[in-house]
């Protein structure tokens, strides 16, 4: 189910307030991938579905009072993020979200990168890939197993930002608000994650090895 299949904003809100049950289920399904990413980014994957469910219960109660100051999906996303943050704090971990954020900037910088010489030029010409479309990449089974393996190994912070940006399609400002990180840190972490996966695909293309 794609978000583009949903009615336009005003009609969507009115029909949901008027208890259009079929549309409600359609919206729950259509928005789940991105709402799940938001919840998983804050509380982890094990209870992300539960957090989204609880957030929807709050949405149902508050929907008649929705004032339309933001898009409905943005409002629902914030409720999911708040629910996730409350859960995170209730788990009474020894570190707060804020102190985790501080660590985000201490991640080691790309000081030396074996792809480049001391003057910053490519050591070897970057070879072209045989594959030319995302669908072809996704259809290559062994390559996807390799990408999946490396995705699980990414540092959590990098993985979360990449999930929110590239899987959930959220804007950077919204991501920074939800995860309470600075824009400059978020951009660096996002690029490191993408660059790492590019290198994984490049190596697989070059050598056939993961």
């Amino acid at each position: 189910m794609d978000t583009t299949d949903l009615p336009e904003e005003n009609e969507l809100i009115q029909r949901l307030i008027n208890h259009d049950q079929q549309l409600f289920v359609t919206v729950v399904k259509a928005w789940h991938p991105s709402l799940y990413s938001v919840a998983a980014a804050i509380v982890g994957h094990s209870i992300a579905d539960e957090v989204v469910q609880e957030a929807w219960v709050s949405v149902i109660k508050a929907l008649p009072k929705f004032e339309g100051r933001s898009a409905l999906k943005t409002w629902v996303t914030r409720i999911v993020a708040n629910e996730a943050k409350n859960r995170y704090r209730k788990k009474s971990r020894s570190v707060s979200l804020e102190s985790v954020d501080e660590n985000w900037s201490t991640d080691s910088r790309m000081v030396s990168d074996p792809r480049f010489d001391s003057s910053g030029h490519w050591n070897q010409r970057n070879p072209a890939w045989d594959i030319g479309s995302p669908d072809e990449l996704l259809a290559a089974g062994e390559l996807q197993d390799c990408v999946d393996k490396h995705l699980t190994r990414l540092p959590d912070q990098q993985k979360y930002i990449m999930e929110l940006r590239d899987s959930a399609g959220m804007g950077m400002e919204e991501i920074c608000n939800i995860l309470e990180v600075s824009s400059s840190n978020a951009r660096v972490l996002l690029h490191r994650a993408r660059d790492k996966i590019q290198q994984v695909v490049a190596k697989f293309q070059r050598t056939g090895e993961c």
Partner: peptide
């Protein structure tokens, strides 16, 4: 080539792992 490859990687990531309700 790198720029093209990174765009392709991002497009691939966008279509992966869509967690269903």
């Amino acid at each position: 080539r790198y720029m093209k490859q990174l765009k392709l990687t991002i497009a691939m990531l966008g279509r992966k792992h869509h967690h269903q309700a």
